[in-house]
Design a protein around this nucleic acid. Structure first.
Ligand SMILES: [Mn+2]
Ligand SMILES: [Mn+2]
Ligand SMILES: [Mn+2]
Ligand SMILES: [Mn+2]
Lengths: 219, 219
DNA sequence: TTATTTTGTTAGTATAATCTAACTTGTTAG
DNA sequence: CTAACAAGTTAGATTATACTAACAAAATAA
């Protein structure tokens, strides 16, 4: 049996290692706001259980089993977020904390039912992919908005990371997934960009924002 | 803050005290399958927190605060069961274990939304009343089927207690809430009764079953 | 009413998950 | 290349929740 606490560590490690393939005790410590010695002993325990490759003073990695386990928790998290938005009428900035709890519910039937009712969605309300029931996560080749050039026309596909504050900021700008943006200017000093979309002709987005927006270039 | 574990003790105590007003360490121990010394120390802790009246060797009672706290957990449990049946398509015998977990989710918005979507229901799928948001539970004056007389015509209003096995037995007999039953015979030897309902003319129900069925006499 | 059984309590132990303090190892800035 | 700093580890303490063994009180039977 795997505890709620252990599940949260696995998920943190999965997310931290998603790009680089490894993570450190210190990073998990900061992510979960738990002191390093606690993280250290938990990593040893998860290593005992076969979910983590642990060697003293070396970076941490998930085993294949650990990856699958973590992906299945993330699956439950993202299915829940999608269900809350699509079926219960929550806004995309209201669902993360609830999903953070419901992801730990032990009931395959419950999540299977959600999946069915949603019509087997592949992304969550923030555009992140939902792993399949084997823990396999499809990766799309979207690019961050801050890597685009003047004149590019792009569609907003995902927000990552999607903090509540960022999502509320996007709400205030009427920027949602699927919106098509045209890039008119890039300020060299602070890398802020000027875009147009819908009926908005000249919105300025800071690099703090553009570094979180994943887009797909059109043509 | 009140832990998931503490919530389960409060709920057990509430249900055990519902009729008699008090319960014993031994009863809680059996109900939760937790040894008596553990229950004993938890009762002292809950007493410290103001939820339980504890005195050595005396029966246990909930304080007013404890009653309200417990009723609000039961509210979450029953709202969840109703939601699972009405909005997600689960059967009445599939929802208890899931609700047992979801009742511990901390999110007023989540349960408020459920309540809204359900249209503010007053009973759960097994006919038990759903406490209001102040923890007040309306009590209906239904009677158990095993107290009825020959010739009585009654409507099935609730099943209590509603074990999975019992619910499945009722499914197999096509007996559901709202069904109207006519009592034709009562066997003095084992108190089993013969009833008719819908197109079934002579179904025999044992006293084990009739002792769990709450009915409202017609006329 | 005494003896037996059941119930309740105390004491001591165990495991999970957290912390702080102190020490070790690794990394980085002069 | 060393000195300082950052990161990782070990040791020991703490809290929550459980257990068993032993004892005390209450209820029940003889
Ligand atoms: Mn989320
Ligand atoms: Mn979580
Ligand atoms: Mn239930
Ligand atoms: Mn529960």
């Amino acid at each position: 049996m795997i505890s709620q606490t252990e599940e949260n560590y696995l998920k943190a490690l999965y997310n931290l290692t998603y790009l680089k393939g490894e993570a450190t005790v210190n990073e998990i410590s900061k992510r979960l706001d738990i002191k390093m010695p606690t993280v250290n002993s938990m990593m040893k325990k998860l290593s005992e259980k076969g979910f983590v490759h642990y060697e003293s003073y070396k970076p941490l990695k998930l085993t294949e089993e650990g990856k699958k386990e973590a992906a299945l928790i993330i699956r439950k998290h993202r299915l829940t977020e999608m269900y809350l938005v699509e079926k219960m009428g929550f806004a995309w900035d209201e669902v993360h904390q609830i999903a953070e709890q419901i992801e730990h519910i032990h009931s395959p039937e419950f999540f299977t039912k959600m999946d069915q009712l949603l019509g087997y969605p592949t992304v969550d309300p923030h555009g992140s992919p939902i792993p399949d029931h084997n823990g396999v996560m499809r990766s799309e080749n979207y690019i961050f908005l801050d890597t685009c050039k003047i004149g590019n026309v792009v569609t907003l596909m995902a927000v990552q990371p999607s903090s509540k504050e960022l999502l509320q900021y996007l709400n205030s700008k009427n920027l949602e997934l699927g919106t098509t943006l045209t890039i008119h200017a890039i300020e060299p000093f602070d890398r802020s960009i000027t875009v147009s979309y819908d009926s908005r002709s000249a919105e300025v987005l800071s690099s703090k924002v553009t570094a979180t927006l994943l887009v797909r270039p059109i043509s």
